[in-house]
Design a binder for these strands. Structure first.
Lengths: 232, 232
DNA sequence: CTGACAGCTTGATCTGAATCAAGAAATGGC
DNA sequence: GCCATTTCTTGATTCAGATCAAGCTGTCAG
């Protein structure tokens, strides 16, 4: 990878406190690449050759089985994916594709494991990242098992709203097809769910959403820190 | 805790390669306790004061929201639970109760974090354990999103069958109520799902299940290593 | 043995969500 | 700008699974 890209990568939380020597050893074998939209980066079942870090753009994690496909998560800058597979030297459980043009850092997994065991600071960052990813999936799982489709959508809108600065309106960060799959429903059903939310002050216009009656929406959504909070 | 219990704990994979000194420091503040069935050990939302290790018995992990309750997992010996909350010093995302009389090891979480940072061998074991838990939840999530209720039950039966030595019959390890919740369905629907599986050679008698037509059951279940395999 | 109770099953019905089938609206290429 | 393609919405219908309501079965205390 090019030397000009190094400072940008070095400043990521994952790498900032590791030693220069180990950082160089890690980057020596790394690739920083820009991929077009809709490119399949990894396929579930393949051995975990690289750890991926999304630097710019957005990557969709998904899985297939029984002729069905489901979106399991969206990774935004700066986030990693398939960390557990790399640490365990196992196969990927999820596939990944870019959802828009994206800059992605690829770190060879044997190198990551080497330095994980050498560099205490790096291993701590990794563990925090891994624990966070773990808790995110648990929250997703609770969301799916304990809520109806409309409740999931309502809470998701409230989350995006907070992410985007609580201005009373928000932009959907993904197309509705993807959002539907992420929320565990069909696109048709997402449309209808938006219809239901009209009664709670939710006005949709393409990818723009206005929340005109937050109290009503929250009464419906019943947001729960143990499912919706991104930080803990 | 009593000195007599130490060797048993020391031999657990999580602790076997750490230094004596660190092991003693960890155990000094630990409790090894036996709890009766149906005792709530932790409640979601509480701060993670202890890391739990199930030594004997069985512990159910579950969560509540919106007047609904769902079983998220069952922990058998020797398994840990709420490791991520302990490492992140955050609140528990799940509640836990004993499903039968159980012997459980409680490790104060500040002590676990201290020694995690001091003892390389321990931290590696922890990371492997954490990565494994993470991958398990991802698999659960895929199971729920990509399969119907009958498919989930069929695959679960095949899993128990393998766990118990592929003798052609198996014992359900939990009562049907719990199994239903674990599989994301109601007890009534579990009954009906067993009814459907009769056509595939599945004969149920209380907690005993016979699989009389494995090929048919597998055709229905379409087991998938990336969802069902426990080891990778 | 008997009654009470929990756990499970079965049947009837209802409901949330998927599917099927058109349209409508946005998007992109030329 | 205009057509072609994709994305989204809307309506009709079907289906899986939840809920409601009895009934059944095994267990256990007395």
């Amino acid at each position: 990878m090019r030397a000009a890209d190094l400072p940008q990568v070095r400043s990521l939380k994952l790498f900032e406190s590791m030693t220069d020597q180990n950082f160089e050893a890690l980057m020596e074998a790394a690739y920083l690449q820009t991929f077009p939209a809709q490119l399949e980066l990894i396929r579930e079942g393949d051995p975990a050759d690289f750890l991926y870090v999304v630097i710019e753009g957005c990557v969709e994690l998904f899985a297939r089985a029984n002729n069905r496909e489901s979106t399991l998560g969206m990774v935004h800058p700066v986030g990693t994916f398939i960390l557990a597979a790399v640490l365990k030297d196992a196969v990927y459980l999820m596939s990944a594709r870019t959802s828009k043009r994206s800059k992605v850092l690829l770190l060879p997994s044997d190198r990551v494991r080497d330095i994980f065991y050498k560099d205490d600071s790096f291993s701590r960052s990794i563990v925090v990242e891994l624990a966070s990813c773990y808790r995110s999936v648990v929250k997703e799982h609770k969301d799916l098992k304990l809520r109806t489709a409309v409740e999931r959508l309502a809470n998701r809108l409230l989350r995006y709203h907070v992410d985007q600065g609580e201005t009373g309106s928000l932009k959907l960060p993904h197309d509705k097809r993807t959002l539907a799959s992420l929320l565990g429903m069909t696109p048709e059903n997402l449309s209808r769910a938006f219809g239901t939310l009209k009664g709670y002050g939710v006005v949709v216009n393409g990818g723009s959403v206005k929340l005109n009656d937050r109290p009503a929406l929250e009464t419906l959504a019943k947001p729960n820190a143990l499912i919706d909070d991104r930080t803990t």
